[in-house]
Design a protein around this nucleic acid. Structure first.
Lengths: 130, 130
DNA sequence: TTATATGCAAAGTGTTTGCATAGCA
DNA sequence: TGCTATGCAAACACTTTGCATATAA
């Protein structure tokens, strides 16, 4: 993996985020610094970095992939109606079993994500009305 | 939600699965019983049933949504290289915090999924070679 | 009877890819 | 120098949607 300005700007932009931006959110922010960068380059770099374990590619619903600068444990709540994704409080995180207990295969475990799903506050309210 | 033959066949087909088929896998199996059903109908019904909490829509990576007949707790392993999704042994499941502890919002929690990610056995092996 | 569901096909959305050029190592 | 990354645009894969018709309640 070669070091290019595009790649480092993408990573820097991503690291300023506390949430999980989509590729085109990243693209538009990166373009403020590199106006000629292409969306394809953004996708290619995000993909490579997530394969390298530098960042995390999340598939949280809503049709768009999201990217996380800190590949650490996370808990999210996803609404099955409107696809909204909300972060859950840190202290919700539970102690997961030792990764090695996954089984005795040769998988390399980089991390995990925990996702709750259901109706968000807004959709739950609208549901009551029907 | 009206009961139609299409809907019940879709649900029946899904319930024969122990894995998490994609919409077009379901479509092709349903078509053996209802040759004139359309893909759009399959999508519409899967969406409705997942909104109703009857089934679970999973976004596990690989670009395709997957559907699960039993909206119960699940643990998966996803390869960040090849996007393969593997089921993890049942006994891996951990005791999650009481859903009510999520916070004191008015969210309705239907369930949760736990996902590990990393390199699957095959991709881990190929990675060693490089 | 009438509102919801269907089949069909077209449109949409997000993502990937081929190719010629640029630029890192 | 040689090989990887880029920009551009076209192609792709999956999903959603408009519309006229069919059908459950």
């Amino acid at each position: 993996m070669r070091n290019t300005e595009q790649k480092s700007v993408i990573l820097e932009v991503l690291q300023t985020h506390k949430d999980h931006p989509t590729a085109d959110q990243i693209y538009s922010e990166v373009r403020e610094r590199l106006p000629r960068i292409s969306l394809g380059t953004v996708y290619r770099n995000l993909e490579k970095m997530s394969q390298a374990g530098v960042i995390l590619k999340l598939e949280l619903g809503g049709g768009q992939k999201r990217f996380d600068p800190t590949p650490s444990d996370h808990a999210h709540f996803r609404c099955v109606i409107c696809s909204a994704v909300e972060d859950l409080p840190e202290d919700l995180r539970i102690d997961l079993p030792e990764l090695s207990t996954l089984d005795n295969s040769k998988r390399v475990v980089l991390g995990n994500t925990l996702e709750y799903y259901g109706y968000c506050e807004k959709c739950a309210a609208e549901r009551q009305l029907n």
